[in-house]
């Protein structure tokens, strides 16, 4: 690849590929520490509810309220569900420790994934709108998700999970301002300079 070609009379400034700011060199910040217990509990709850049902059925059978075969099935389900819950919780804990994010001068970087890694970089100039969401359990931990929508259909939104409510709010405000600025005037920049990492406003 030759970065300094000209196409169709369109003069393009030559930029050495190595001189471009590298998204990999940005130190990323882990998500809020409260995210890990939240994720573990959320993952556990999903499996523990059926496990609880199994437990009740087992006790019911022990007390003679339900036929004996139910006890065997219930015990099996209980063990299986608990195992899955534990596995899910371990996975969630790992996942939580893998989630990282950073803000550059012109884009937002988010990295996640335990087995399948994924880094997403969204330029501010391409964000259509931003919203913050938090469920009841998340609110207990003071967490908020930030959603950024870009064009491009279903693949066009980025959810940054595990931000402090306050951080998410400030981030949203900042992004909205940047979007508005971008609409008012075309940015005249020589090239994106690196902002100090983790600088969340």
């Amino acid at each position: 690849m030759s970065p300094d070609t000209q196409a169709g009379g369109f003069a393009n400034r030559a930029v050495a590929a190595q001189a471009l700011p590298d998204f990999r060199s940005v130190p990323l910040e882990p998500v809020a520490p409260a995210y890990r217990p939240y994720a573990v509990i959320a993952a556990g709850l999903g499996w523990l509810a059926p496990a609880g049902a199994g437990l009740v059925a087992w006790f019911g059978a022990r007390a003679g309220l339900l036929p004996g075969t139910v006890a065997v099935v219930a015990l099996g389900a209980l063990v299986l569900m608990t195992a899955l819950a534990l596995l899910g919780m371990v996975f969630a804990a790992l996942d939580a420790s893998r989630r990282r994010w950073a803000l550059r001068e012109h884009d937002l970087i988010y990295r996640s994934g335990v087995l399948w890694h994924r880094s997403v970089i969204v330029p501010f100039a391409r964000i259509q709108h931003v919203e913050t969401v938090s469920g009841p359990l998340e609110r207990r931990f003071g967490l908020t998700r930030l959603k950024c929508y870009t064009a491009g259909g279903a693949g066009g939104d980025l959810t940054v999970a595990g931000l402090h409510g306050e951080t998410a709010g400030r981030l949203r405000q900042y992004l909205l301002e940047r979007i508005r600025d971008g609409e008012d005037e075309a940015p005249e920049v020589e090239g994106p300079r690196l902002a100090s990492p983790g600088d969340d406003d």
């Binding site: 930029v15 012109h106 884009d107 330029p123 100039a125 994106p192």
Partner: peptide
């Protein structure tokens, strides 16, 4: 990574 950096650079320095 190089391609990604180029794409980002192009998107961020482009006219709107």
């Amino acid at each position: 990574a190089q391609l990604a950096n180029r794409a980002l650079f192009a998107a961020e320095t482009a006219r709107q």
